[in-house]
Design a protein around this nucleic acid. Sequence first.
DNA 1: TTTCATGTAACTTTGTATGTTACATCTCTG
DNA 2: CAGAGATGTAACATACAAAGTTACATGAAA
Lengths: 152, 152
Amino acid sequence: MKRDSRLSGVLHILLHMAQQPGPFTSETLAKAMDTNPVVIRRVMAGLRELGYVRSEKGHGGGWTLACDLSKVTLRDVYAALGSPALLAMRNRTEAPGCLVEQAVNAALDQAFHDAEALLLSRLGEVTLAMLGEDLRKRLGSRKIHDISAHRA
Amino acid sequence: MKRDSRLSGVLHILLHMAQQPGPFTSETLAKAMDTNPVVIRRVMAGLRELGYVRSEKGHGGGWTLACDLSKVTLRDVYAALGSPALLAMRNRTEAPGCLVEQAVNAALDQAFHDAEALLLSRLGEVTLAMLGEDLRKRLGSRKIHDISAHRA
DNA sequence: TTTCATGTAACTTTGTATGTTACATCTCTG
DNA sequence: CAGAGATGTAACATACAAAGTTACATGAAA
């Protein structure tokens, strides 16, 4: 299964933006993420709708943070992406007529549901501010990492 | 992301096999699962290697259960499929040089790891025998469901 | 009015599960 | 032994979603 890296990617972007004053163009962010500006706009669109970031057109335009980083959790960011599927597995058939399949689904659904709930709960415990704090520790005495000098 | 339904599918097969004496040809099972015999052979191959089922060629051949259903858990079956990815999300980059990405990965990895561990643990708690027991309850007074009359 | 930026639709590429075809191999039956 | 019925498996085809790309409309600043 082709796995989704949008959450990872958008968090990377947000954290970079928190390190320097904006605004950042999609072009700049795309170079740092080694991807395409349109991809950036795509994943940022959901965040904009929820008011976590703002975008401005024209000269001097680009993306800026527009939220209290201590109030936004990774779960919020996940939701801003449209809450894509969390698990790589699914039931063969939902609402099957076959009792055998119903029994299988019931067992799997419970396990799936518990795992999803835990994952969402964990994501809900971490704020963007906490991520930034962790980053500061990792940076240590080092100079602030400039996004334009980004290497994956 | 295209999600994997092999675990669901193979459990369905095993539970059907537990309801009637075998052997079952891939052809029969494929019809019941509304798929192709080769797909059946493919998912059953891992189970055969672990000794959970046996296959015989030629006249009167096919698949038979070869394990104690109370000893095999859903986790074992999952492992027999080759332990495919559990989560639909992944990190953009593993072992990144960028400290920002390291911070993001660290946060996500912990959440991902916890969710995977819980899922595996839940799967490990359920045996095929327990699934069969649940099925019997669902069947109630009804006659045993013949696989040849299968409807999804 | 030109330049620089986002917004977005449409299309292409890529990776993976799933489906299909073809054929080799084995085993029972007659 | 010959033929039919089964699995084993490689090779290829299809379906689908994420990711990448192209093209162009729109808006804002110089």
